[in-house]
Design a binder for these strands. Structure first.
Lengths: 71, 71
DNA sequence: ACATTATGGAATATATATATTACATATAGT
DNA sequence: ACTATATGTAATATATATATTCCATAATGT
């Protein structure tokens, strides 16, 4: 599997909604740690979780996770 | 983790590019089986793989994987 | 100073995404 | 009928996403 680095703007979206990591994690049904690690780019979440996070933050997949690479 | 069913249009995007499952799998660096199972909705791919598939098919994440749920 | 909240980080355990290998079937070409 | 290609499916193995638990720290309020 190639090494695509993906920036994500989950933290921004979360703060915009006035949520803590704990609150978002409860809404998404995952642990606080999982949220923290996704925000800091150390986790490679599954599509299902990405979709849940998009729904909860009222953003699209592209908004949250779209590629920013220098091609 | 909630049970969000996600339709995906990966198969359509692949066929539009004139690719077989094998060819797409090679381009994406995964096995043919993985592609087949994602296309048939039986796999929950990781974000990295979704991003690779989007790049290879020249579609966005939303194009390929965005939610179609009856809310 | 103490308590509470929010976050980061690490160690271990569990669930699951993906690989590997193999076999089956349908279709198209010869 | 035979061969090759494309796809589906299943069993087992491996890698990794996520949970669980615990500790640390910074910020804020009392």
């Amino acid at each position: 599997m190639e090494d695509i680095t993906f920036e994500n703007s989950l933290r921004l979206a979360r703060v915009e909604k006035g949520l803590t990591q704990s609150e978002l994690s409860e809404l998404a049904g995952v642990t606080r740690q999982t949220i923290g690690l996704i925000e800091s780019g150390k986790y490679n979440p599954t599509l299902k979780l990405c979709l849940i996070l998009a729904r909860v933050t009222e953003k699209s997949l592209d908004d949250l996770f779209w590629i920013k690479e220098g091609e």
